[in-house]
Amino acid sequence: TTYYDVLGVKPNATQEELKKAYRKLALKYHPDKNPNEGEKFKQISQAYEVLSDAKKRELYDKGGE
């Protein structure tokens, strides 16, 4: 599973699309609303952290993490 899959976006997604997808999923899986989905929330946050940063995203796209 790639970070793009976690957020449900395509690899060519814009920053705005990433932000929108992250917010939607973060609300859905937030531990306050969904106590059993803490791990999913962490995955979503990690994916967004990497993909929202241009340098980290470039490194990730080249095969790094």
Rank of each mutant, 00 (worst) to 15 (best):
L25T: 01
D53T: 03
Y3E: 01
E65W: 15
L25I: 04
Q46C: 10
L51W: 00
Q46S: 06
R57Y: 03
I44E: 00
E16R: 12
D32N: 14
S45P: 00
V9D: 00
L7K: 00
L27T: 12
Y4Q: 01
K28E: 09
Y60V: 03
Y4S: 02
E37I: 07
Y3G: 01
K19F: 10
K56W: 08
T14A: 04
T1F: 14
A21I: 03
K40S: 06
V6W: 12
G64W: 15
T14I: 02
V9S: 02
Y22F: 13
N34E: 09
S45K: 15
L51I: 04
S45N: 11
Q15I: 10
S45Y: 12
F41H: 04
N36I: 12
T2P: 04
G8M: 06
N36Q: 13
N34T: 08
K19H: 13
G38R: 13
L18R: 00
N36P: 07
N34H: 13
L7M: 08
T1N: 11
K42I: 09
A26L: 15
P35V: 07
G63M: 15
A13Q: 01
K10N: 10
G8P: 00
A54G: 07
Y22S: 00
H30L: 06
E58A: 09
E49Y: 12
K56A: 14
Y48A: 01
Q43C: 10
Q43N: 12
K40H: 12
R23G: 10
E65N: 13
E39L: 11
G63K: 07
A47R: 00
E58R: 05
D61M: 03
T2C: 11
A13K: 00
Y48D: 00
A47T: 01
N34V: 07
R57H: 04
P31T: 07
E16P: 06
K20R: 15
K33S: 10
K24N: 13
I44Y: 03
K19N: 14
P35H: 08
F41V: 03
D5E: 09
K42V: 08
Q46M: 14
T14M: 03
A13M: 03
L7F: 03
K19I: 12
V9R: 01
V50F: 06
D32W: 09
K20S: 14
T1C: 14
T1M: 13
N12F: 07
R23F: 15
K62A: 12
E58L: 07
K56R: 12
K55V: 15
Y48H: 02
H30P: 05
Q15S: 15
D61I: 02
E58V: 05
R57G: 03
K55S: 14
Q43Y: 09
I44K: 02
A26S: 12
I44H: 01
T14P: 05
Q15A: 13
G64P: 13
T1V: 13
E17R: 03
G63Q: 14
E49T: 08
L51Y: 00
D5W: 05
Y22A: 02
T1W: 14
Y3N: 02
A21Y: 02
T2E: 06
N34F: 07
F41Q: 02
H30W: 06
E58F: 07
A21H: 04
E65Y: 15
K24L: 13
A26E: 12
F41D: 01
P35A: 15
Q15N: 13
P31G: 07
A47F: 01
P11H: 10
K40N: 08
K33T: 13
F41N: 02
G63I: 11
T2S: 15
E49Q: 09
K28H: 09
Y29V: 04
K62P: 03
Y22L: 03
E39W: 11
K40T: 08
I44A: 04
A21M: 04
L59G: 06
K62I: 08
V9L: 07
K19E: 15
E58N: 06
L59D: 14
N36M: 13
N12L: 06
D53F: 02
D32C: 12
G63L: 15
G8T: 03
P35R: 05
Y29C: 04
E65Q: 12
S45A: 12
P31K: 06
V6A: 08
D61H: 03
E37H: 11
K42M: 07
Q46V: 15
D32E: 10
A54Q: 11
D53Q: 03
A54F: 08
Q43L: 13
G63F: 15
K62W: 07
K42G: 09
Y29H: 06
G8A: 05
A13T: 05
L25V: 03
A54I: 13
L51E: 00
L18G: 01
T14N: 07
H30G: 13
T2R: 06
E17K: 04
Y48L: 03
S45L: 10
E49A: 13
A13H: 02
Y22D: 00
R57P: 03
L51S: 00
A13W: 01
Y60K: 01
T2M: 06
S52P: 00
E17T: 05
P35K: 13
S45H: 12
K40R: 11
G63D: 10
K56D: 05
T1L: 14
A21D: 00
G8L: 05
Y29N: 04
E37L: 10
K42N: 09
D61Q: 03
G63P: 06
E65K: 04
T2W: 08
S45G: 06
K19R: 12
K42R: 14
L59H: 10
G64Y: 15
L51P: 00
H30T: 06
F41Y: 09
E65T: 11
L27N: 13
T1P: 13
G63W: 14
L18E: 00
K10T: 12
H30E: 09
S45E: 13
P31F: 06
P35I: 07
N34K: 07
F41E: 01
T2Y: 11
P31Y: 06
Y4D: 00
V9Y: 00
G8I: 02
E16W: 07
H30R: 09
T14D: 06
G64K: 12
E37M: 13
A21T: 04
K62E: 07
F41W: 15
N36L: 12
K28Y: 11
R57L: 03
L7H: 00
T2I: 05
L25S: 03
N36V: 07
I44L: 10
R23L: 15
Y22P: 00
S52K: 05
T14R: 04
G38N: 13
Y4A: 02
Y4W: 03
N34C: 08
K10Y: 08
E65P: 12
K42H: 06
K40Y: 11
G63E: 12
G8S: 05
D5T: 09
S52M: 10
A47G: 01
V6H: 06
K62T: 07
T14V: 04
T2G: 06
Y4G: 01
Q43G: 06
E37R: 05
Q43D: 08
P11I: 09
I44S: 01
P31E: 07
T2L: 06
K20Y: 12
Q43H: 08
L59N: 10
E17D: 11
L51Q: 00
L7D: 00
P11S: 11
